[in-house]
Amino acid sequence: MSPGSKNKSFPDEQRRLSGRRQHLLLRARMVQAIRLFFVNRGYLEVETPQLIPSPVPETHIDAICAGDLYLQTSPEICMKRLLSAGYPKMFQISKCFRRGERGTLHLPEFTLLEWYQTGTDYNGLMKECERLFIWVSRSLEMGENIRYRDMDIILKPPWERITVSDAFARYTSFTLEKAVEKGCFDDVMVGDIEPHLGINRPTFLYDYPASLAALARLKPENPEFAERFEIYIGGLELANGFSELTDPEEQRARFERDQHQRQNSGRQVYPMPERFLNSLEHMPETAGIALGVDRLAMIFTNSSRIDYVVSFTPEES
């Protein structure tokens, strides 16, 4: 008998799944708390199609084909069409799909919380994020301080706010301009900046270069930057939010630019989302955000891998 065969009567899968029980229970309570937060605050829960004809043509996000359609990479486009039609506050928790994204922090099929509120900008949205996290933490009876990967994180607002430009100055030997020019923005971000973000309290990293914002509004007083932010806790990126671009012409130009970049790098080019572009002129001032539910579950279960907060990874399904 080989030493490994002792547990044959108890298959690996049962052992794995029963070992994950605490995380899955906490994840379920977390999702319930999220729903309650938004319902209490007057947001409408919506469902939009996961099968869509034209995904957002972002340069670095690849969709999965499903027959003549695509699985959504985010519910952004349909939810904004609802905004344009007069729905002022809404949220959605849905599965999104991105081809080729698999790692300790990535699943090609993952759960996204997306919400929008009209009449506010990214500053108002940041405050809503602070309220949501505190609410969820209290609902899980974890108070205002949580422990994540040997770090004590204080969730009580205000969180740290640092511009992308300042983060480059503080943590790297590059300037932001130089990194963008040399094409190493992503490398520096992953290698030198992200590990410093959200160490004792969550961090809002905000004001991204205009070239790195597909659907965000540019700052009226400084159009070199977009009103976009990301949330980090313990070096983990959790959410991407922004003041929405509401100018259809500008939006079309950016999509064309992104389609070009996709074509030049040999990636599939998706059809232009015409219905979305047509609706955009009716969209009021809005801020919106996408938050990774799996990653939020990692934070509250103190997990180092996204695998530990789902029942089945793609390799196990």
Partner: peptide
């Protein structure tokens, strides 16, 4: 595998 924000 890393993919910062909406980056590559």
């Amino acid at each position: 595998f890393s993919k910062p924000g909406k980056g590559q």
